[in-house]
Amino acid sequence: MAPSPVKTLTVDLYLQDVFNCEASNDSDISDIITATWQQWIQTWLEELHSIITISGAYELSLRLTSDYEIQTLNNQYRHKNQPTDVLAFAALEVKVPQSSEKISADESLYLGDIIISVDTAKQQARQNHHSLTVELAWLVAHGLLHLLGWDHPDEESLLQMLAQQETLLKLVGLQPNN
């Protein structure tokens, strides 16, 4: 078995107003906290490593919050005064980092921030007939792809991105129902 291309991954998980989200209950909070975000994201980075072969160590932040906070951020940074499901703020300034941009082996590459509204995720999970865990993983995968330079300005690129998200979820044993 080949060694893992991703040697280390640091996921800083922040729970902001999650306990005050609309209709949150103990089961939802347990799903959020016990989800294996670090392991899932590492698996996804290993899958995508062929297009981001610049580091063996990565870092990102994942913030799970309420519609109120994400609406504030969406208004501040995208000038859309409404809640959204996921925001991704990439730290990289290039579309897809190239292998010529390698950083030292002991240095982590900071990818950026993923912010998800648990309120909106709960609504979407119900609409799509799957668990909150699957919906949150779907949104984290979407945000991660944005951090790595993926975008969906047209229907074709959106379909490619959604297919990649589905592939990533299947890698960690999750299956979206949409």
Score class of each variant (00 low, 15 high):
residue 3 P to N: 10
residue 6 V to L: 03
residue 7 K to F: 08
residue 15 L to T: 09
residue 15 L to H: 10
residue 16 Q to F: 08
residue 17 D to V: 00
residue 19 F to T: 12
residue 24 S to W: 01
residue 24 S to L: 08
residue 26 D to I: 06
residue 27 S to G: 03
residue 27 S to E: 14
residue 28 D to M: 04
residue 29 I to V: 15
residue 32 I to V: 14
residue 32 I to W: 01
residue 34 T to E: 14
residue 35 A to T: 14
residue 37 W to F: 11
residue 37 W to A: 11
residue 38 Q to N: 13
residue 39 Q to L: 04
residue 42 Q to G: 11
residue 42 Q to Y: 01
residue 44 W to N: 05
residue 49 H to C: 01
residue 51 I to H: 10
residue 51 I to M: 12
residue 51 I to R: 13
residue 51 I to K: 12
residue 54 I to W: 00
residue 54 I to P: 00
residue 54 I to G: 04
residue 58 Y to R: 02
residue 59 E to Q: 14
residue 61 S to C: 10
residue 63 R to T: 15
residue 64 L to M: 11
residue 64 L to P: 01
residue 65 T to M: 05
residue 68 Y to E: 12
residue 72 T to C: 05
residue 77 Y to E: 07
residue 78 R to Q: 11
residue 86 V to R: 10
residue 87 L to I: 14
residue 90 A to C: 03
residue 93 E to A: 06
residue 97 P to S: 04
residue 97 P to N: 00
residue 99 S to A: 14
residue 102 K to F: 04
residue 103 I to G: 02
residue 104 S to G: 03
residue 108 S to F: 10
residue 109 L to T: 01
residue 112 G to S: 10
residue 112 G to I: 11
residue 116 I to N: 02
residue 119 D to I: 13
residue 119 D to Q: 09
residue 120 T to M: 06
residue 121 A to I: 12
residue 123 Q to V: 13
residue 124 Q to I: 13
residue 124 Q to L: 15
residue 126 R to D: 11
residue 132 L to K: 01
residue 132 L to Y: 00
residue 133 T to P: 00
residue 134 V to C: 06
residue 135 E to V: 02
residue 136 L to Q: 05
residue 140 V to S: 09
residue 141 A to L: 02
residue 141 A to D: 05
residue 142 H to R: 13
residue 142 H to L: 14
residue 143 G to T: 10
residue 145 L to S: 02
residue 146 H to M: 05
residue 147 L to E: 04
residue 148 L to Y: 07
residue 152 H to R: 01
residue 153 P to K: 03
residue 159 L to E: 15
residue 163 A to H: 09
residue 164 Q to T: 15
residue 164 Q to I: 08
residue 165 Q to F: 00
residue 168 L to Q: 04
residue 169 L to D: 08
residue 171 L to E: 08
residue 177 N to Q: 15
residue 178 N to R: 12
